[in-house]
Amino acid sequence: MISQGQIAEAARLEGVLEGAATRPAQSFWSESWERLRANRAGLLAAAVIVFMGLVALAAPLLSALVTHHNFHEQDIQNNFAPPLFPGHVLGTDEIGRDTLTRLIWGAQVSLGVGFLTVAISIVVGTSVGLSAGYFGGLADDLLMRLVDVVLAIPRLFLFILVGILFFRSTTLVTLSLVIASVGWGGTARLVRGEVLSIRNRDFMLATRSLGAGHLRLILRHLLPNALPVLIVAASLGVGGVILAEAALDYLGFGIHPPTPSWGNMLSNAQQYFTHSIWLVFLPGVCIFVTVLAANLFGNAVRDAFDPRLR
């Protein structure tokens, strides 16, 4: 199973291959932005993600005003209803809960875990990577040693162990922490790599000789240059986390019913395959489309910042 860190690393290597960014900051950004805007697949992907995100945020509203169900309401006499059943546009599940409503709330959970995990990974990973890369020396050694340890634990083993720890109280937040506990390492390495390649450039030396403090150098010069790589990693990361959450649900960890997540809806539905194939198909499609969109967007960003590919 490929981790988000490894996907990001692959993306970075692809970028390196095509010639890493060596242009100065300003026009680079506007050029890249132009390229991004011209990439129709990428824009479509971004639209899909934004759409899903909005659905996720508006779940309570949609549930009250559009579907008129909430996600735990049961209508057990009408279980396994197919789509277009009266009152249930996309059908019902094994105890008669409305599938559409659960997909909407599931978006909140799946995307919530995705974004929160990535956010945590990036914040922690970037801080560590920046510090290690910039300050070097002992700090670098220690921090990277820590990163090595975290990356050495087989990912799924760690998920299982930490998952057991948080079992009784697995919420969106704790699950994100669990998955992020592994993800930040990859980001740290990525950022550190970027910092190392930029640190000794002329413009850096120049700025430093002008008396700029550490913080200023890090925030105004290093970070912006690391940003493209981060955006790509984040985008690919969200997709990876959504898949990881589904895998954890399959193993028995992750978010438990009645709270719906696309992952737990998909795994639960496997045994009801013969009663309603929709229960398998619909959450699967949601996962697939969202992860695909995240990946396409990530690729589009990378393409925009490293044009030699297309």
Binding site: H72, E73, Q74, I76, E94, I95, I164, F167, R168, H256, P257, P258, N268, Q271
Partner: peptide, 27 residues
């Protein structure tokens, strides 16, 4: 799975009479 589903059904049944039961599958 049958048990995990049952506790959810129980919770809903009792919700209707004003009793709040939170289903929690545990290790």
């Amino acid at each position: 799975k049958a048990r995990e589903t049952t506790i959810q059904v129980l919770a809903e049944s009792w919700k209707k009479i004003g009793v709040e039961a939170q289903p929690k599958p545990i290790q």
